[in-house]
């Protein structure tokens, strides 16, 4: 343990805190903190997935909330049909089926939108990803079968063998385990040959192309992996909130995800977790003071962009970078 850097210590501490405190609070009758932590961890997975393409790949996706929504609807729609009838083909409470559905749909959506979006670059990419997520938003808003704007209530959570998602402790355990797995997955990807190409293409695309790499293919693969991970986070979020609506995909949600990644520090392992923690706490604290909490939040965003380089992780590492 001697050669651990400041950042890996910070990561370790953060993960231990997240592992120990929420269950402790729950056991002492403070379910509220457990709720907060579950939301934090699930959004953390989404932020980690966004960081893979935004931080390491340089692809500024402004539409990641669409994947959360798709994952959540993959729980809600089968569950809705299982409760109210109709559409027997997908009507099911089976968690494994819903999970597979969430992953397949998120992956296909990522593949199609990614294949088109990645032909563009820079600001076009930012806006086209945003537009595609709005497309998903309006699609679900116009589906009266699933209550459109008003959203769906999930009456029965996904049913798994061995795990009972109705238990807050087990749901948190699953989410926390998934977060750790997501972080390890991203770490493995980033340090692999694949990840090196991805980062090389971020720094200088022409050079990588000249070296003979088909960077489009690398980026698309990363985009699909990221979208699928985010769809998984949506699957968990749907099971956590038991209420889903198109609002989960609204472009401001994507903006909040981006904020988490940048605030925490893009292209760092811990950054997205720090960012989502700060976001959740801020939302909770500020909104308890005033309904106008978006005002200080917005001011903070502007301040972040103007004055903080490299996010919270940048501050942690010092000015050396």
């Amino acid at each position: 343990m001697k050669n651990m850097t400041k950042t890996s210590w910070a990561t370790l501490i953060c993960m231990v805190v997240l592992a120990v405190f929420p269950p402790y609070f729950l056991l002492h009758g403070q379910a509220f903190y457990m709720d907060l932590a579950t939301r934090l961890v699930i959004l953390g997975i989404a932020a980690v997935s966004l960081n893979l393409i935004l931080g390491y790949g340089g692809m500024v996706s402004f539409g990641h909330a669409a994947f959360i929504g798709l994952g959540a609807y993959a729980v809600g729609i089968p569950s809705h049909h299982a409760t109210w009838g109709g559409f027997d083909l997908i009507a099911s409470y089976n968690g494994l089926f819903q999970l597979a559905l969430a992953i397949v749909i998120a992956a296909v959506f990522a593949l199609i939108t990614g294949a088109i979006s990645l032909r563009t670059k820079g600001v076009y990419f930012i806006m086209i990803t945003m537009a595609f997520s709005q497309m998903a938003f309006f699609l679900f808003q116009s589906l009266d079968v699933y209550n459109g704007d008003d959203g769906l209530t999930i009456d029965v959570r996904s049913e798994f063998p061995f795990i009972n998602l109705d238990s807050p402790m087990q749901l948190y355990g699953l989410s926390y385990g998934s977060l750790v797995a997501a972080m390890l997955l991203v770490k493995t990807i980033v340090n692999s040959r694949f990840g090196m190409v991805l980062q090389g293409a971020k720094d200088n695309n022409e050079r990588m192309v000249t070296l003979g790499y088909n960077t489009y293919f690398y980026r698309l693969t990363a985009y699909v992996i990221s979208g699928t991970m985010c769809g998984y986070a949506g699957f968990l979020l749907g099971n956590f909130t038991t209420f889903i609506s198109p609002d989960m995909m609204h472009w401001t949600r994507s903006g909040e995800l981006m904020f988490m990644v940048i605030l925490g520090g893009a292209s760092t392992a811990l950054g997205p977790i720090l960012g989502s923690s700060v976001f959740i706490l801020m939302e909770e604290i500020l909104s308890s003071f005033t309904i106008f909490w978006h005002l200080p939040f917005g001011l903070m965003l502007i301040g972040l962009v103007l004055f903080v380089r490299g996010g919270l992780m940048g501050l942690l590492k010092g000015k050396g970078k």
Partner: peptide, 19 residues
């Protein structure tokens, strides 16, 4: 600054103006 900063900064601005 770069486009990512524009997007984040003006997103903040949007929240401020709307509020």
């Amino acid at each position: 600054k770069d486009h990512l900063d524009h997007v984040l900064g003006t997103f903040g601005l949007l929240l401020v103006l709307d509020t």
